[in-house]
Design a protein around this nucleic acid. Structure first.
Lengths: 132, 132
DNA sequence: CCGTATCCGCGTGGATACTG
DNA sequence: CAGTATCCACGCGGATACGG
């Protein structure tokens, strides 16, 4: 990427935006939080994660793991035993990330029904004819 | 956890998936966390949010606000004074959501440089020829 | 001032087949 | 077992123009 020439950008909330972008680029995709959560009790192998993460494809698991590895959230270790296999494990940073996401998970658990409620109310009010 | 049992129908992590999807569908998009954050000190008008959220288009602000309103995160109030305007305000649930996202924001602030570091290391190791 | 409508590029993620 | 490669559908989000 080329550096921007003159950068006439307000800096204050660009920082906020930057931080939210960073965190969303890590956990904001479809599988990352699930994979991180599955690693909470220690290292897991590729196939274990694949079976534990219902509906994920090999490709998406690889992509997700590579991304998390690149960000320093987990480590990838190749074991040259027989049969050879690969294990993934949360780093220190990965464990703190998981702790940081826990409140959000708790929140969603606590408010799931309330959200459903709000949506039903909103939909009924805004689009009553949609019930066909 | 029922990991050790014979479990032909893995319901446990389907629930996990459900929760992560719910929370990601609310705050996992580009602008929601920013908008919620801008409402932390009380109601704001549409144009205020527009100016406060750098780079957002009118369409995306409307879409984001509608989505958050539908989920019961904020309320939309039309003021029929002169000149007429609209104000948005966090609900009780919206405020608890903001509190739940705070640790994640703190985490990203605390680990930003470390993440950059990890990425640089990974890229240098995996793709040294890219620098040439 | 506060939206809505339309068009469209692009990135994410899914399906499938192939490799070491 | 643990990936890689290729193709493609879909939805998010941006630009722009228009309406109440």
């Amino acid at each position: 990427m080329e550096a921007a020439q003159s950068d006439p950008r307000p800096a204050a909330q660009s920082d906020d935006a930057c931080r939210t972008r960073v965190v969303l680029n890590i956990v904001g995709n479809k599988w990352s939080m699930l994979v991180v959560r599955h690693l909470r009790n220690g290292p897991r192998r590729f196939t274990e994660l694949k079976r534990a993460t219902d509906g994920i494809s090999q490709r998406m698991l690889t992509v997700t793991l590579r991304s998390l590895e690149r960000d320093g959230i987990l480590t990838r270790t190749v074991h040259e035993v027989m049969p050879p296999h690969v294990s993934y494990e949360l780093t220190e940073m990965g464990m703190t990330l998981r702790q940081a996401t826990a409140p959000l998970l708790d929140w969603s658990i606590a408010h799931l029904s309330r959200i459903d409620d709000a949506r039903a109310t909103y939909d009924a009010r805004a689009d009553p004819s949609a019930a066909s």
